[in-house]
Structure formats: structure tokens, C-alpha cells
Design a protein around this nucleic acid. Sequence first.
DNA 1: ACGCCGACTGCGTTGCGTAC
DNA 2: GTACGCAACGCAGTCGGCGT
Length: 317
Amino acid sequence: MGKHERQLIEEAEKIIEKILNSNPLTSNDKKNRWFFHALQVAKQIKKDFTNISSAKHLGNRYDNTGDMLIISNGEKIFIEIKMSDTKSGIGTRANINQDALTENYLFVGEVKSWSGFRKEKNHDKWVDDYLDKFSRSPQKILKISNLITQREEKARYLRNLKRNKKSKDILKNIQKRDREEKLEYLNYLSVQKQDAEMIKGFFILITLGIHTKEPLVDLIKEKNFFKEVQNLFIYYANYHKGKVIVRREDTGERVNKIISKYSDFKIVFPKGLTHCKIAGIRGSKSEPLLQIVLHWKNIAQGIKTPCLNIFDLTPNN
DNA sequence: ACGCCGACTGCGTTGCGTAC
DNA sequence: GTACGCAACGCAGTCGGCGT
């Protein structure tokens, strides 16, 4: 689903708002790609919450969870809507910013971010040195004045050179050294003091689907985000075998379950792997919940767009 | 078959250069 | 000094495909 879809989804959310407020729909509304999804979701919300006196679309405010606020029997209910045209059986996964591990107070005191750590290691410099071992870069690339762009284009060029051993080796060596750098960083993190409460909060927020930079940093500071979540319901509208299936998730319930299941939370660092895991402690057992992978999204490892890939390890999701 | 990444891409923001 | 335009960068979302 491309970026432009987002606007359509937002329009669809406003359609739901209109229906809940018993406002008329326009012919344009009915042409929306997600019209039937919206219709079904609205129907289900009406069924689930009686006496809705108002529904308000909240738009792209980052400081709250939920796309919509409804008042049902005088009570505030936040509703989040996720629409998809596939069956979408996959668990929570997120792609969050590179320094999220240290930006969200998961460790106590001054802890180096991944980006800061790389700076100390002169990451860009050693990458450039490797790239420059290839002596036949096209003039077009060598002429690029922006050093970052030039680095990226060099790497891209090497990547695109099929069946050239030298270029392959260079990228492989960069990847290898970058992997060592990742391990070194994780090793550094592994001896830092952790804040279990924050780790718990982080896990909950990620689980709830809050994974963008600003909301994460803001909400994790608020000790009461847990309260907010009590009245949050997520409606999933999926398309399956010619029908729109609507499913409701009670996030308060879900979070309660998670919290009551584990007495403590911590980050574990498996030896020799480029990820760490958030684990819940249950009795004497430590259960893996999230896998957080240090990763480069673009071109090749070590080159462009570092990020954290998050995988949901909780059983049956 | 499917989980696990790797890659591509669009958008928003930032920051810099230029013109007034 | 300020306002504007553009380029570059960072962030987010999703899809394809490889390896097990």
C-alpha cells in the first residue's frame, strides 16, 4: 500500500464519523476505495456502543492513540481503525528509528545512541575507505559534490555490478565490518543499567502499534498512558474471500493480560547476534517478546538508512 | 510454506543558498 | 535581515523473495 493510500484511509475514517453522527454521505464518499470497509466498521461500532451522542475524527494528532473519539452513554471511547484489502495474518511488526533504544529511557543515565556510537567509530570514514578500493567508479559518480550522496551512489554502483568479484567483496567486507560494529554496540548496551519500568512501557506501546518516533518518546514519559489505553478499541477491517471482516480488539484488556502475566521486563543480548530482545519474566523463566534488529534499510548494510526492525515473538500473537 | 529480512519509495522536515 | 525555493536527509510503510 503506497503513501497516497493514507489520504483515502483518512477520508474513509471521516465517512465512519459521518455515519456515526447520522450525517449525509456524498457521492464522492461512496466512490472511496475503502467505502465498504468503512460501512462495516461503522455498523459494528454502532452495535458495540449504544447511544453514541457524538463522534469526532481526531486526524493526525501524534499525542493520542486512536483515530476517533466517540461518546457513548456519556463515556469517552477512543477508536483506532485499520483497514486492509488482504487477509493480513501477520503479527505486529515495526520499523522504528535507529536510536529508539536509547531515546526512550530504557537505560539509566547517559547511554550512547547507535548513531553516536558509529560516529565515534568513524563509521563513514572506514566505509569510504572500503568503497575507494574500487578504482573504476564512473566519473559521473566521482563528480557528485555531496559526500553522502557520492558514498551511496558508489555503493549502489558496486551493488549493481553483477559478476564482478571485486565489487561484491567490497560490499561483503563492509557488511562484515558493520556487523562487528553492531555487535560491539550491542555489547556496550548489554552492560548498561536498564530501567525495567520503561522497558515494560516500551513493549506495551510497540505492542499497541505506537511505533513512530514522537508518540513513543512522548507517551513513554507519561506514566498514565496506560490509563488512556483502557478506553481504546482497535477495529480491524480485512478483506477476505469477497467479504469485509471486522474484528475488534480491546487494548485495555490486551495490555492488562500482558502486564499481569509478567513480573518483570528486561532486555537480553544474545551473544553473536545483531539484535536484542525484550523479554518478560514469569516465575523463573524469561520469555522473549520482541526481537529488535539493528538494520540498514537501504542499498547495503552499513551504507544508508539505519533503523530498528521489530518482530513480535509473543506466542500466537 | 513461511519467517525473516532487504529493498524500494513517498512524504515531511530541515537547512542551506539566493534574491530581494 | 528576511522570505522563499529547493535539495537532501530522516522516517515510515509495505512488498518481494531468499533460505530454511
